[in-house]
Amino acid sequence: MYDPIIKELFPNRKSLYMEQLLSAPTHDSFELPESYERNDALWKRHNLDYLNGDYNLSHTCSHYGQNFFPSTFARKALLYLQLLCSVTFSEKHYTIRKDLPSYLIAQTFYGKGLLRYDGKEYTLVPGDLFFIDCRQKHEYFAVSKKGWGYRFIHFDGYSMSEYYKKILESGNVRFTFSDTSHFQELFKELILINYGTDSNKEVITNRILTDMITEIFCQLPQYQDSGSPEFIAELCDYLQNSFTQKLTLDKIAAECNLSKFYVSREFKKYTGKTIFNYITDLRIALAQRLLRYSNLSINDIADQIGFDDHNGFYRAFTQREEMSPSAYRKYWKTF
């Protein structure tokens, strides 16, 4: 089964079975900059041995493939591609792997697959994609007698660990996009810009990958218009006006005339944070301003923003900013 995106972009491209691909004297249908053996050596040099795991790749039909060896600048500053492919596999296909320094987005266009990841199972039908960190153990396989076809992107980047924390917070790694979605247009754009020889394609690729992740984020509960109850907005207003005071869950719940257990659960559901994480974020934001623009001592700042325990303030600030309050003040005083 052809990938409709590849068929649209390259109507004359011929798909090849992997056995043909690796024995062919030229690689017109699979964009390899050098020989397969040379690429295999480069993958291993970059600790990207994609075949370091358990696989069944028999009767693999490749519709498109391109691998990448990003520049030093891209590896240090951008989201960058490692592998971009479109493939149809037989019903026997499976992959079991871990410890690959790469993130993977794989979108089904044919048949049916199943992913096991982070203690959960996800069924994948056309339009569905999964987004995983390949450092964690993962396994996926065809569950359709007609096989399974999916297009996929292996990529990485300096900011990806923070991006991916948001995915994990949602408790879901499967997302769905229609054929007419903006995500599909971005996928096409990604293929086209990297098919060409533009000197700025790494920078444009960074933008496209960021846009694709943004489209995925827009399906996360914490970034959707949740239709939250009115009391959630009122509670946020209350906390923003009183976070420097000594607050207890009982006092907060009384303000809402609701059970503290109900308030805690619903607040986390609609904001993605616990009540006290929300309060701490407000306090740290005020501490940042005071450290930058006032001469108050660090202990006085801790008192003013609502921390009775100065050590607790130090720990909370350092955890969020990855530097101590004094180091933060010193850093900003240099500007």
Score class of each variant (00 low, 15 high):
F335M: 15
G306Q: 06
N200M: 14
R97S: 15
T244F: 07
S294H: 06
K120V: 05
Y270K: 04
R151W: 01
Q240E: 15
I284Q: 08
L249A: 07
F183H: 04
I284L: 08
T95H: 04
V203L: 14
Q222S: 12
S294I: 02
T205F: 10
S144K: 00
T26W: 02
L124N: 09
I191N: 12
L124I: 10
F73Y: 07
D3S: 11
H182I: 04
Y293N: 15
S181P: 06
F313W: 06
H46Y: 13
L258D: 03
N277S: 14
D156S: 12
L48H: 07
K269N: 09
D133V: 07
S264N: 10
Q184F: 04
P11L: 03
A74W: 03
Y278K: 02
N257W: 05
Y103L: 13
D198K: 15
C236K: 15
M323Y: 00
E139K: 15
Y150K: 11
Y164N: 05
F155S: 08
L78M: 13
L129F: 05
A327L: 10
K330E: 11
P325A: 09
L190H: 11
R116C: 02
S181Q: 12
K92P: 00
T271H: 07
K330N: 13
K246P: 11
V203E: 14
L83H: 10
C218Y: 13
S297M: 08
T210D: 08
E139F: 08
D211I: 00
Y17P: 07
F217D: 01
F187A: 01
D3H: 07
Y2R: 13
Y223P: 03
L16E: 06
L42F: 05
R75A: 12
L220D: 04
S58H: 10
P229S: 15
Y328G: 00
Y314R: 08
C85A: 09
R292V: 11
G171S: 01
N200Y: 15
E266L: 03
E255D: 11
L124K: 03
H310S: 09
Q288G: 06
E19W: 06
Q20K: 08
D225F: 08
N194V: 03
K201M: 09
V87M: 02
A254G: 10
F261Y: 12
D237I: 04
Y80H: 15
D303S: 05
R75F: 02
I213F: 14
N194W: 00
K201L: 11
D225T: 10
Q319T: 02
M212R: 01
L124E: 14
L124Q: 07
K98R: 10
Q20F: 02
G65D: 03
N311F: 05
F267E: 00
D128R: 00
L78R: 06
L186Y: 00
N52W: 04
A285R: 10
L104G: 07
P11C: 06
N311V: 01
D308T: 14
E202D: 13
L81A: 09
K76T: 02
N206Q: 07
S324Q: 04
E321P: 05
I213T: 12
F175Q: 02
H63C: 00
V263T: 10
L78T: 02
Y262P: 14
I208T: 06
K7A: 08
S90Y: 12
E121I: 03
D54R: 15
Y270L: 01
